Simulated scan of single mutants.
Amino acid sequence: MKISKLSPNFEVSDIRKTVLFYSENFGFKLVMAVPETQDGVDQILFEDKEYVYAMMQQGAAEIMIQRSDNFKTDVVFSEGMPIGASVSFYMEIEGIENLYQSLQNKNLEITELKKTWYGMHEFYLKDLNGYILSFAEKLE
């Protein structure tokens, strides 16, 4: 077996709000979105449509977001489980201090930016759906 890519699929309550959150705060771009009708894909979010799925990308990072009702149908093991996670999505980035400063006044749940014993400068943030994002940069 060879794994060629790992892309998290976040269960979310609102596709549009989640796309906006990840694009405004972290520079993710919408790759595609699937409307409720599931009869095709859109490259932009149309105001008159509701969506059940979207894929976003920023550099080599890719995330999928799927509306809760649709997610629970596809991922039957998730039935009865709340949205959110007890796992963090750890991302190595460049420019951590600039990112941290840009998020400071946005009323987000965010930890202090700290230097770790394992040689990283990092902080954690909880997204609007309860997922834990970790941002890290190697110390020089």
Rank of each mutant, 00 (worst) to 15 (best):
K126C: 02
N105M: 05
Q43W: 05
N107F: 07
E137N: 05
N107I: 07
F123S: 04
R16P: 01
Y100N: 02
Y90D: 05
N107D: 15
L139P: 06
A33P: 03
I83P: 00
K72Q: 13
K5G: 07
A136D: 03
G84N: 08
A33T: 07
V87N: 04
L30Q: 08
V34D: 00
D69W: 03
E47H: 14
F71H: 14
I110D: 03
V76A: 12
E109S: 15
S4R: 15
F28P: 00
Y51T: 09
L113M: 14
L113W: 06
E11F: 01
E140K: 13
A85W: 00
L30F: 12
P8V: 07
F21K: 02
G130K: 09
I15F: 03
E137C: 04
M32H: 07
M56N: 04
T111Y: 05
A54C: 14
L45E: 07
M56E: 05
K115S: 12
T116F: 05
P82N: 14
L108A: 11
I132N: 02
T37R: 15
F26E: 02
K29T: 12
Y118G: 02
Y124P: 00
I65H: 06
T18S: 13
G130V: 08
G95P: 04
N25T: 01
Y51S: 08
A61E: 10
V19D: 04
F21T: 02
M1P: 10
M55A: 08
V87S: 07
P82C: 06
E62K: 12
E50K: 15
Q101V: 10
T73Q: 14
L133Q: 04
P8Q: 12
Y100G: 03
K17R: 15
I44D: 11
S88E: 02
Q104P: 01
L128F: 04
H121K: 11
N105Q: 13
E62G: 01
S78E: 05
Q38M: 15
K29E: 15
L133D: 03
S88D: 06
S102F: 09
D42N: 15
F89T: 01
K138R: 13
N107Y: 10
L108Q: 10
T116Q: 08
T116E: 06
E92F: 04
L103S: 06
S68D: 10
K17Q: 12
E62H: 07
E50S: 14
E79K: 15
E112G: 01
L20A: 11
L6Q: 12
A61D: 12
L139T: 13
I96Y: 11
F135D: 00
N98E: 15
I65R: 01
D48H: 14
I110G: 03
S134G: 05
G80R: 13
Q57G: 01
L128M: 13
A136Q: 01
M120C: 02
Q43A: 05
